[in-house]
Design a protein around this nucleic acid. Sequence first.
DNA 1: AAGATAATCTTTACAGCGTTCAAATCCGGG
DNA 2: CCCGGATTTGAACGCTGTAAAGATTATCTT
Lengths: 206, 206
Amino acid sequence: MTADAADPKPYHHGDLSRALVEAAERLLEREGASALSLRAVAREAGVSAAAPYHHFKDKNELLNAVARLGFEQMGQAMKKAIEGLATPSERMNAVGVAYVCFARENKALYNLMYDPGRDRDFRADAPQSPDSPLAIVMAAIRENAPPDAALIDIQLSQIAGWCAAHGLAQMAGNKDFDPLKAALGGEKAFFSQVLSHLGMYRGLKL
Amino acid sequence: MTADAADPKPYHHGDLSRALVEAAERLLEREGASALSLRAVAREAGVSAAAPYHHFKDKNELLNAVARLGFEQMGQAMKKAIEGLATPSERMNAVGVAYVCFARENKALYNLMYDPGRDRDFRADAPQSPDSPLAIVMAAIRENAPPDAALIDIQLSQIAGWCAAHGLAQMAGNKDFDPLKAALGGEKAFFSQVLSHLGMYRGLKL
DNA sequence: AAGATAATCTTTACAGCGTTCAAATCCGGG
DNA sequence: CCCGGATTTGAACGCTGTAAAGATTATCTT
C-alpha cells in the first residue's frame, strides 16, 4: 500500500501507460472487441480522451501493447502446461493443447494478437523471446523430431504444427464440431485428437 | 448491352442489392479492409448513404453477402485447380495449395470471410453446398484416407487438414518464412511442402 | 530556493462513421 | 389517371479517431 492506493487524483497519473493497457485488457474481456474504442479505454482509466496520445502514437500502438501483454500471458500458460512432463511427445501434445485452450479461453485477446487487419510492428509474436508462444511451439516440435531429420524438414514441420494450432484455435468455435467434441468427452480431448491426427492428412496410419 | 449500360440514373436502381455487393468487393481489393465503410460502398455504387438499409438490415449483413460471394469464387478456383488430376493424393495436395493460394491472392476478402469478430449468420463457410471450400477440402481428405480407416479418424483428419490450411493462409505473410520460401523456389512450393510435412508433427517419417 | 523547461493532462474542435426518420421520388395495379 | 407501396434522399444524432491549444504538474539548471 505504498504506491497503489494513493490519492484519487494524482493529476499526473504516475504510470498511465501501463494503466491504459490494463484498462484495455479489462474492457476487452468484459465487453468484447467491439467495445474497445480508444475513448472507452480512456474512460475506463479515468482520463480524458486525448490523454493516451502522450503515451501511444496511435490506437493501433496501444493495441500492440495489449497484444504484447497477451503474448507474455500465453507463453506463461504454455510453460506451466508442460511442467513435469517427461517425454518430448507428451510435451509436444501438451503444448498444442495449451495453445488452443488459451486461445479459446481468451478469445477476444487472441483475436487481437493475431488480427490480420492491424499493423503489427513487432514480429508476429515476438519470436526473439524464448518464452513466446511461437518459440515454445517450435521447441516442442523440434525436440520431438527424429534425430536424423534434415533441418529443412524440421523447419517445415514446425511451421505446419504452428499453423494447425492457430487454425484450430480460430475454428474451434464452429458448431459443426459439437457432436465430435461430445463424442470425445470435451474440448480438450477434441483439440488433442485433432492435433494427433495431423499426420493422417497424408493418408498415413497412426 | 441490353441491361447493363442503361441510363446513368435509373433513380430506382434496378438491382441495387447486387450492385452494392459488387461495389464492396471492388472497394475491398482496391483500397483494403479499412476503407470498407458502408458510406464508402454507397458512394462507390453512386447512391446515398441511407440507401443500403432498404436491402440490408446492417453493415454486417452486407458484409455477409460479400463473404458469401467470396466463398463461391473460392470454391470455383479450387475446383478448377483439381481438374484432370488422377490420384487422390495429388488432388488432396492441389486442394490445399489452391486453398492457401486463393487466400493469399485475395487477402482482404479471405480475412472478411473468416473474420472472427463479425457475426456470421450463415454456417462458417456454407458447408451445405458441395462446392464450398470446406466441402472440397473435406472430400479431398476423405478420398485420400486409407480404406480401412475408422470414421472418427477420417473426421478428425479432415478437421486437422482444414485447420492447417486456414492457419497457413493467415500466417503465410510472416516475413520469417521468406528464406524458406526462397530456398524452395516460391510460395506455391512452400505451401505444398508445409502441408506435406503435417505428419511430422507427430515425429513420423515422411 | 527559484525560475525555466519539459512532460503530462484537459478542453475544444473536426471529419468520418453507422444508423434512424421524415420527406421526396418513382413504379405497378385499380 | 391516380393511388399505394416500394425505393431513394437529406438531415440529424451520437459515436469514433485524431489534432491543436491551453492549463497544470514534474524535473532540471543555476
